[in-house]
Design a protein around this nucleic acid. Structure first.
Length: 484
RNA sequence: GGCGACAUGGCCGAGUGGCUAGGCAGAGGUCUGCAAAACCUCGUACGGCGGUUCGAAUCCGCCUGUCGCCUCCA
């Protein structure tokens, strides 16, 4: 079998590049996690489902991946620039509680919702407040190397000391200076300098002692400090939402490369946005629909609840670098499509190997792999499944089940369960035997009714079962059923 | 104003210099007591205008439109 190669789109070069880890078979991957001051919404789902697919595919390719995703529980401000209230502190004030309680609460709901979406947990989920010493140490290094300066308890990164500043986002300092939105005077040397450490006032809730007095870390330093702690000073993949490209990731690069004197990250991957009626969905825009609202249907824009797996499938049906425009119509189409895919899988799972001609596993695998090798094209991979499994199902229903069916099943598990994470879920009730026993009994009764041409009764059984989510299907060899 | 994306059939959504994406919806048919499911058949799309080419929806230019970043944000 010809070894295929993985190509990934690297924001640094704006090109697809051959993926070659720094120290194969190990891969270090860092993805910017959420700021935990509110429920995760569909936009978060797109990002974390995208990187979940990337993680799963890398593991499918036998890379030994260490996946780190931070939890930001301090430091991001509500207002413009460097002024304003800490988001967690604000939420704590509104909910009349402590910032750490807010962080705990929304860390819990974040993982709860990601679990529902079948997003694998990161190997390490470091919290910003748990790494204040590391951040302080990094800031000290930057000051020692002349890349940062302290002004009365505020420490800033001096962007002019970094000739590479702007290489990720493709913007130069000149561009920034000529822009109309660069704001005004402060104690910075250059308006583009960004805060590494901020002085805290007496009323500030979250603050720590430092060489520069009581304060709290700036917005970008946590990712630099924690990624190097757990993945080393250079690592393979850094991911995040497109909107973090600038300034967040640009600043991370500046801090890390100036502190360590070596390349920070080899491949930068950015997922695109979820839009709602053409507008970016975002917490601060007020148009976000939370995942919990999707799962419960409790939102004015939703007519009903949506299964987490449908959300995952819906997201995987578009490429991670494309925007995904949300609508209930599109979700509904995804739901039906997923149901049909599941029905194919179930048919295949229930079938036994026969004497029919062998199913071409190599072809399936190579077309599935080459879709994902092309910058993780999950939409294409799903199309491959629909296309080729249809042939297999036909072979089975024609009574010439392939001789190598068991191998096919193993392959399907690895592609649909391990990589895509959309395997049909086992019915949640748990009492499957009883349920199917009861349904079989009703089918028997209905069969008698049909023999007696009592269609009123037989239709009542079928219709009432459908109400309960059990679909009866009359076939040549008797009646079969499926449970939603 | 600066930087950067994207524009595909009714809808969602991949992709490629010439050969069917796929899904959903829809139409007809087979099957069925009627359904459902399954199976078969059907759509010849790629914003506009130029250019390169034997040939472009795919490459280049311009235009139009939409969106993102430049402020916390997945």
């Amino acid at each position: 079998m010809a070894e295929q190669k993985l190509y990934v789109y690297n924001t640094l070069s704006r090109k697809k590049e051959l993926f070659e880890p720094l120290k194969p078979p190990f891969v270090g991957m860092y993805v910017c996690g959420p700021t935990v001051y509110g429920d995760a919404h569909l936009g978060h789902a797109k990002s974390y489902v995208s990187f979940d697919l990337i993680l799963r595919y890398l593991r499918y390719l036998d890379y030994k991946v260490r996946y780190v995703q931070n939890i930001t529980d301090v430091g991001h401000l509500v207002g413009d620039g460097d002024e304003g209230e800490d988001k967690l502190a604000k939420k704590a004030r509104l909910e009349q509680t402590d910032p750490m309680q807010i962080a705990e609460k929304y860390t819990y709901t974040y993982f709860r919702d990601m679990d529902a979406l079948n997003v694998l947990r990161p190997d390490i989920a470091p919290r910003a407040t748990g790494h204040i010493p590391e951040q302080i140490a990094m800031i000290e290094t930057l000051i020692d190397k002349g890349h940062a300066y302290n002004v009365d308890g505020n420490v800033y990164f001096d962007v002019k000391s970094d000739k590479d500043y702007g290489k990720l986002s493709g913007r130069s300092l000149e561009d920034a200076e000529s822009g109309t939105r660069v704001e005004t005077a402060s104690d910075k040397k250059n308006p583009e300098d960004f805060a590494l450490w901020k002085k805290a006032g007496d009323d500030h809730l979250m603050k720590w002692n430092s060489p520069w007095g009581m304060g709290y870390p700036g917005w970008h330093i946590e990712c630099s400090a924690m990624s190097s702690k757990y993945l080393g000073e250079s690592f393979d993949i850094h991911g995040g939402g497109l909107e973090n490209q600038f300034p967040h990731h640009e600043c991370e690069i500046a801090q890390s490369e100036c502190a360590h004197g070596k390349q920070f990250v080899k491949y930068w991957l950015h997922n695109n946005m979820v839009t709602l009626e053409g507008q970016k969905m975002g917490k601060s825009l007020g148009n976000a629909i939370s995942l919990d609202e999707f799962f419960t249907g409790n939102h004015k824009l939703l007519s009903r609840s949506w299964n987490p797996q449908v959300i995952r499938f819906f997201l995987l049906q578009s490429h991670y670098r494309s925007t995904t425009d949300f609508s209930e119509d599109a979700l509904e189409a995804a739901e039906t499509g997923l149901k049909n895919l599941h029905s194919m899988i179930t048919t295949i799972e229930k079938a036994e190997a026969g004497t029919g001609s062998k199913f071409d596993i190599e072809k399936l695998k190579s077309s599935f792999d080459s879709a994902l090798n092309d910058d993780f094209n999950s939409a294409q991979a799903i199309a491959v499944l629909f296309d080729q499994l249809k042939t297999l199902r036909k072979q089975i229903s024609d009574g010439s089940s392939p001789a190598n069916l068991e191998e096919v099943k193993v392959m399907l598990h690895s592609m649909i369960d391990d990589v895509l994470g959309i395997w049909p879920s086992e019915s949640a009730g748990g009492n499957e035997e009883l349920t199917s026993g009861l349904v079989e009994l009703l089918i028997e009764i209905r069969k008698d009714a049909r023999t007696n041409k009592d269609f009123v009764l037989s239709d009542k059984i079928r219709d009432d079962l459908k109400e309960l989510g059990v679909q009866l299907m009359d076939g040549k060899d008797g009646t079969t059923f499926s449970i939603d």
